[in-house]
């Protein structure tokens, strides 16, 4: 595997360079949000309220970890299905988010919103929560503590692996897989 090292937050040049099928290793900061957190952030964006983070250039990780055992920064921490966050993609992109990490296909509307705003969709290794937890250095709740496993987190990661599924040029790895390798 030929891995591309990336910093998160993601700069515009990197987002433009990436192509579907590229494998990347993120180091830096990821923000974690899933269903309910997306619903709340999207409402805040629509209302013009202050967000719990500066979304510009950020990479959002769709995830809800298991509780951290003593001595570990986080429990198992693999991606959740991304399609449930499709209705919120446009608002998140409009606020400046530049990357999303999850697993599984996105809706045509979500793909179009990401393409139009220059945001890249990545999948990480679904169901490999123990493996991925080893790439997470620290985890901190930054908002929506009342949501339990759905709270919004800030992670510091090192060499966190992901695969580009939808690049900003219309490429789609999941479609390629069925077409070329079927």
């Amino acid at each position: 595997m030929n891995w591309i090292a990336l910093r998160a937050p993601l700069d515009e040049g990197s987002a433009v360079m990436l192509r579907a099928g590229d494998s990347v290793l993120f180091s830096g900061t990821l923000y974690v949000a899933r269903d309910k957190a997306h619903e709340r952030i999207t409402s805040m964006i629509e209302e013009g309220a202050n967000l719990p983070f500066d979304p510009r250039g950020q990479v959002i990780y769709f995830m809800g970890p298991s509780p951290a055992p003593p001595g570990k920064p986080i429990g198992s921490a693999g991606p959740t299905s991304s399609y449930r966050m499709d209705p919120f993609a446009e608002a998140m992109c409009r606020a400046g988010v530049r990357g999303f990490i999850g697993k599984g296909r996105r809706s045509p509307e979500a793909r179009e919103a990401m393409r139009a705003h220059g945001a890249v969709y990545f999948a990480s290794f679904g169901g490999a929560g123990a493996y991925l937890s080893k790439r997470i250095r620290s985890s901190m709740v930054i908002a929506f503590d009342d949501l339990g496993p759905e709270a919004m987190l800030k992670l510091e990661v090192a060499d966190f692996p992901a695969i580009v599924i939808n690049d900003i040029h219309g490429g789609d790895l999941y479609e390629d897989a069925l077409r070329e390798r079927g």
């Binding site: 995830m63 929560g129 123990a130």
Partner: peptide, 9 residues
């Protein structure tokens, strides 16, 4: 390491 196989337990 006694970490669950998946975070979705």
């Amino acid at each position: 390491e006694r970490l669950p196989l998946c975070q979705d337990c």
